[in-house]
Nucleic acid binder design. Structure first.
Length: 323
DNA sequence: TTAATTTGACCTCG
DNA sequence: CGAGGTCAAATTAA
């Protein structure tokens, strides 16, 4: 069933390359700056120029890497910036007047045996239940653009979701649909999301994500181009349901992103200081997606648009590899 | 045939 | 007990 993790996804490789590239550029720059300007005065301006270029390369390189990391779940900064073209849903009425409503109740042990019943390996599932409680959760307000409709949606939803339920919510006009990562069983990816159409403004959807993707969506088959990761996009939402409701499912995301704390006072936000955040119990096959598997990264980045890279950065890579 | 969706039952929490 | 969330059998799509 499983057994294809010996290969890093192209994405990971690209990311590593980017990091390396950035590092090298940084070293060069460092060396240059370190040099006692032995070069002749005539080339001084040129040197400065070079420095600038190198700096740009570094920044660009790291930015790419970060974006890639972001892709794992949260809307990359890039997206936010682009959102400028989208209408501000941050209106009075639309704003989460009742954040509690989306605060659902995190269930507990039943993930794999919920309706089931007799499961032999319960012990392992205990971990799962715990895990679920710790899953980060955030909500996005998404508005569909009448023009582009379903076309422009893919943006952030580069992942493949599988619908696993739909429920009528009390007080809500529209039903809420539940999705989970398609690779949940195959890659232990526990990311889920729920879609709730706004009562007032039917053009607005509330997308609540829970958990980050630990899967490498590129694994399936798509052998993407080795150079431009930016290309990856058009390959989602093949579904487009038949109900007028769900029809609008795909949409343009942007706008408000609301991150909520976890349930039992678990501070997810203390990430930087919390080494073993998500102790996925037994880390057997979990880290199939290396860095993608560290949700913290996303969140941290999310909170600090101005990321600061330390020389340590790359080291975390081999660190997580030992699994 | 496999994969995704639909949908009612089931489960947990408040 | 009700509401929200999930499961899984049946159904439909690819």
């Amino acid at each position: 069933m499983e057994g294809k993790k010996d290969m890093l996804s192209w994405e990971q490789k690209t990311l590593v390359n980017e990091l390396i590239f950035g590092l090298e550029a940084a070293k060069k720059l460092q060396a240059r700056l370190g040099e006692p300007s032995s070069s002749p005065p005539s080339s001084s301006s040129r040197a400065a120029e070079m420095n600038e270029i190198l700096l740009k390369q570094i920044i660009s390189s790291y930015e790419k890497s970060l974006v890639m990391l972001n892709w794992s779940s949260l809307p990359p900064v890039q997206l936010i910036l682009k959102a400028g073209s989208v209408a501000p849903v941050t209106h009075s009425g639309v704003i989460p007047e009742s954040p509690a409503s989306i605060n659902g109740s995190p269930r507990s042990e039943d993930f794999l045996d919920g309706g089931g019943s007799s499961n032999t390996h319960r012990q392992e599932h205990v971990f799962n239940s715990k895990k679920r409680k710790m899953l980060p959760k955030w909500t996005e307000k998404v508005r569909i653009s009448p023009e582009r409709g379903l076309e422009g949606s893919q943006q952030d939803d580069v992942y493949s979701w599988r619908k696993y339920g739909q429920k009528d919510i009390l007080g809500a006009k529209f039903p809420r649909s539940y999705y989970r990562c398609t690779h949940r069983s195959t890659q232990n990816c526990w990311a889920t999301k729920q879609l709730q159409r706004s009562d007032n403004d039917p053009t607005v959807f509330e997308v609540t994500y829970r958990g980050t993707h630990t899967c490498s969506r590129a694994t399936a088959a798509a052998p993407p181009p080795p150079a431009s990761p930016e290309k990856q996009d058009t390959r989602t939402k093949p579904q487009i349901a038949q109900t007028p409701n769900e029809l609008l499912e795909s949409l343009k995301t942007s706008l408000t992103v609301r991150t909520e704390g976890l349930d039992d006072g678990e501070d997810v936000f203390s990430f930087p200081n919390t080494p073993p955040f998500y102790d996925y119990g037994n880390t057997n096959d979990y880290f199939g997606g290396l860095m993608e598997s560290s949700p913290i990264f996303d969140v941290v980045d999310w909170f600090n648009p101005t990321v600061e890279i330390n020389p340590e950065f790359p080291t975390f890579l081999p660190d997580s590899i030992y699994y």
